[in-house]
């Protein structure tokens, strides 16, 4: 087991990269997913159609395919980002449709009566969305959004495929060097499990708080 100490630095920087990808990917995907949701329920037909097309395309192409296309395809068009930035952007692009579809199911929990009351009080579509509809929709889909988040945390491992030195990349490197795949990947599995467990607890706490107002 003494060989492990030689990889501690690699592992911890791998975990850090995984966490950074998670934070950036989730933040970006939340913003993009919310915009897509607002577009999906917009009365303007072109916005609606554009968002629906986006969801269809990016939800159905596997993440590794998108990752490779983005990292190796865009440079052919003269566009180049760092590997880390590329991985983060692809995670955002891929995860946003799942957030959008989850959030859209939360919109349906608002009754037509409440929507009518908003209109009668002088709310236009935008302030209605901003001040009541979206916050309420988020509150009702915390648990399913938590599932999307946990899936995304595991999806950060796809970044290793294109050479981002995340947890999976560091694990793979050590496993190849030491010919101890079971032990080393077992360690990585536990790391992912711990991250997922913590996030799951956080989501449940948030959900209990939101449940009070439901």
């Amino acid at each position: 087991m003494s060989f492990i100490s030689g990889y501690i630095a690699d592992f911890s920087s791998g975990v850090m990269i995984t966490l950074e990808l998670t934070v950036l990917g989730w933040g970006g995907a939340l913003v993009l997913g919310t915009i897509l949701t607002a577009m999906r329920v917009s009365p303007i037909r072109t916005l609606n159609a554009a968002a629906a097309a986006y969801v269809t395309v990016f939800r159905n192409i596997p993440l590794p395919v998108q990752m490779v296309l983005f990292v190796f395809g865009l440079p052919l068009l003269g566009i180049q980002y760092s590997l880390f930035a590329s991985a983060a952007v692809v995670l955002v692009i891929y995860t946003a449709p799942f957030i959008s579809e989850t959030l859209r199911s939360g919109l349906n929990t608002i009754s037509t009566g409440e929507l009518e009351a908003l209109r009668a009080l002088g709310f236009g579509p935008r302030p209605a969305m901003q001040h009541l509809i979206l916050p309420q929709a988020f509150g009702t889909v915390i648990q399913p959004l938590g599932n999307v988040l946990i899936t995304m945390i595991k999806n950060t491992s796809v970044a290793a495929l294109v050479g981002v030195a995340d947890l999976t990349f560091a694990t793979n490197k050590a496993a190849v060097d030491e010919a101890q795949p079971f032990l080393i990947f077992g360690g990585a599995a536990i790391s992912y499990l711990v991250i997922g467990l913590l996030v799951g607890r956080l989501v449940s706490t948030l959900d209990r708080k939101a449940a009070f107002s439901r």
Binding site: S111, G113, A117, R119, H131, L132, G139, R214
Partner: peptide, 29 residues
């Protein structure tokens, strides 16, 4: 939207915002 702020409306089914407190219901608009 501005016109509607000048016309109050009370509905048969109340239509209160179900996940807001009564105070928030009244102060939101």
């Amino acid at each position: 939207f501005k016109f509607r702020t000048e016309v109050g409306m009370v509905f048969q089914s109340f239509n209160l915002f179900s996940n807001r407190t009564i105070l928030d219901n009244i102060t939101l608009a």
